[in-house]
Design a protein around this nucleic acid. Structure first.
Lengths: 221, 221
DNA sequence: CTCCTTTTGTTGAAATTTCAACATACATCA
DNA sequence: TGATGTATGTTGAAATTTCAACAAAAGGAG
């Protein structure tokens, strides 16, 4: 497990805990590491919501597919980030979403009960982990809040601009890269892909932005 | 504080803690109770995100108002439910939303730090409270997930039906009451009010549902 | 009961989105 | 390099939503 530590060190769940303790706790919690190829399903809707996942490398998306096959992308998770924790901690029995690898990736899987219940070995940092977990879950809430802020806008143009402005703010620059291709961006914004492409073209002609693939530049005008 | 205990006893944050302990902890955490009239702002966007609120009576809505004044209703909270906890626990400094009283209400306000940090009095149930808080925050996540599921639908009709089906499921009956008037329902579904009214009329004529004010009946057909 | 205000329903026009279909660019692999 | 498949951009038509304006119904205050 030691080779994964550099990532775990940046993971919100292990903040404030030293290397030795983290490694000891992983053992204590029965953490395991699995590999997935791009496109593979890591967690499927309907699976028991008992595990949390930590992205050690690669990336994944939290995706909901409705009755008619329409895809809605809830969030994107990258190296060092966690998924599944909200479902596991809420006490719901099965997952209402899918988690799909968007690149080849390594995922650390930990049973949530092993985190939540104090282990008999009385790991001294157990308390810290739970605090961290609370913060992680609360922060995930903000991510959803932000998605709702974006998708609550009524037009494709407004949704797109709201999303891009948030990305620029996060990047601290008006030049940034998004983790989505056009279809994925459309599925995150909950709009039609062709309409989105058309809107991007229009904004480009108006000089509001420049882009190629996932790289965007917002012109302050 | 004792008179509020019947509500607190049903509040997710105090599960598994006895009456005496709850009352002791309230004191320990410096809980206070404030009253608000319908329409008053309980928390405003931009306020420091340091308090959590518990609805003792009445109800409130978590609301986001955008730059153009468009209202988006994030959630409705009723007696025994908690709000503000996600923001306080995530470490964000200011609130990105407003909380507005939708009925005259009494709200218990507790500083989140007093919950999160172990008190010097070493309340024995402090640990339990933090677990409960984790579950509350995780559950709030599900609420947002559900809102996204509803609003990700592309048509007013689908949004409405998705919402109503969830309500029916929650109520365990195809007859139920929703906490929104038409304008509020539109602001929750993120659609135009008049379009929503029109859609409801249509569904009524088609025999899919019956309703008067907030009371709906879904006909299974 | 009447007046006044708020909520809900209705409607048609304008704006927007979705949908389908296709063109083009890009990438991969043999 | 050519061939194939995927991603992106473009377009026009159909469907839907928003918007504005008004009518009808419901609720409250005096």
């Amino acid at each position: 497990m030691e080779k994964y530590y550099p990532v775990l060190d940046r993971c919100a769940m292990f903040q404030g805990i030293g290397k030795e303790s983290v490694l000891a706790m992983l053992k204590c919690m029965g953490a395991k590491v699995l590999s997935y190829n791009q496109g593979e399903t890591i967690f499927a809707e309907g699976d028991l919501a008992e595990d949390i996942g930590i992205v050690l490398s690669g990336s994944a998306q939290i995706v909901k597919i409705d009755y008619f096959g329409n895809r809605s992308i809830m969030a994107n998770v990258v190296e060092g980030e966690i998924f599944g924790e909200s479902f596991a901690c809420s006490g719901v029995d099965t997952l209402p979403v899918n988690v799909i690898a968007t690149k080849n990736c390594q995922i650390m899987i930990i049973n949530a009960l092993r985190i939540i219940s104090t282990c008999s070995n009385a790991c001294e940092f157990h308390r810290q982990i739970i605090f961290n977990l609370l913060k992680v879950v609360a922060t995930k809430n903000l991510v959803f809040n932000q998605k709702i802020e974006v998708t609550s806008k009524r037009s494709t143009r407004e949704k797109l601009m709201t999303y891009l402005l948030i990305q620029a703010k996060n990047a601290g620059s008006n030049e940034f890269t998004i983790p989505f291709d056009r279809q994925e961006l459309a599925d995150y914004l909950e709009v039609d892909r062709s309409g989105l492409s058309a809107e991007i073209s229009k904004l480009r002609k108006e000089g509001v932005l420049e882009c190629e693939k996932g790289r965007f530049v917002l012109n302050s005008k």
